[in-house]
Nucleic acid binder design. Structure first.
Lengths: 154, 154
DNA sequence: CGCAATTGAATTGCGTGCAATGATACGGAC
DNA sequence: GTCCGTATCATTGCACGCAATTCAATTGCG
């Protein structure tokens, strides 16, 4: 037993619990995705593209909650590996359109059972899964609304 | 409405929901801690030290789930700012003992209401808070146990 | 049209997070 | 006492994540 007072101080902190779980989730995904040399964030970008292969950098950023400071280098790495293509939009040269290559599309079926493997690794009962998902989404939406008081979605 | 198929693909992913919430928590703490120029992780280290001012680098790492690759530079920054002190243990020169300076200890009362402010910002009902904390802790413990099958705690 | 303001990405700087490696100290076998 | 294995921390390399800045393209206003 570690049983230090410090452990008892961190234990009831919601932020620390979520922070810890998130890092463990990341660890599981890191191992699951290692054969493809994909990071978790790269995987999320691919998930988005698999379901909508007509996204801009800004659109991806809105979906994932990431800005260009994170996405630009990430997408460049995916492009360097031949998984996606980037090109300036004809209508507006400022916009960069991101699309899958055949290699990138092929990963969708290869990685199809990653979420299943993740579910196994967490060992979460279905009820727990539903509860946690609902709480996380509710909280996320509430906090997003607080930071962008004007609900703008064109 | 974004209403792309990609959003619907990310929506039911537990890992993405937790990942999103964690980053929003981090955002709230970043703002709360900005006046003290403390990062969230630095704050966690201080929380641990406030409750047990006799920790080693290894002990801190076990409490926070971080390794020396993260903690060493972090602690050096806190030391450079005069908030903590580090010194080799007399009994075992490999061990580095981390302790608070008076300035570091003084922050405890200054930052006393940060958790309260955080609670306000999340707008979480008490029942939600309890549920989410319980789920996160349960899941975290279960996954930690899976990765360290031998429950060693000296 | 001419020009300021705005927008979309990219870049820069800094602080994590983690794998892998290195350096030093301890401890037991002999 | 010497040597080998282990333990502890530091360092390096890479990839986020985010604030702040820069750059180019577009829009809006006169």
């Amino acid at each position: 037993m570690t049983s230090s007072q410090a452990a008892e101080a961190l234990d009831p902190m919601l932020c620390f619990a979520v922070y810890s779980v998130e890092r463990q989730f990341g660890q599981v995904y890191r191992e699951l995705l290692a054969p493809w040399r994909l990071s978790y964030t790269q995987y999320l970008a691919l998930v988005a593209l698999w379901n909508d292969d007509a996204l801009t950098v800004g659109g991806l950023g809105e979906l994932l909650g990431l800005d260009s400071g994170t996405l630009s280098p990430l997408l460049k790495r995916l492009e360097a590996r031949g998984l996606i293509a980037r090109r300036r939009a004809a209508a507006d040269e400022r916009v960069v359109e991101v699309s899958l290559t055949d290699a990138g599309r092929a990963l969708q079926s290869e990685l199809a059972d990653v979420p299943g493997c993740f579910g196994d690794r967490t060992g979460l009962a279905n009820e727990e899964y539903v509860q946690l998902l609902a709480l996380a989404k509710t909280l996320s939406a509430r906090m997003r609304a607080q930071d962008h008081p004007n609900g703008k979605e064109e």
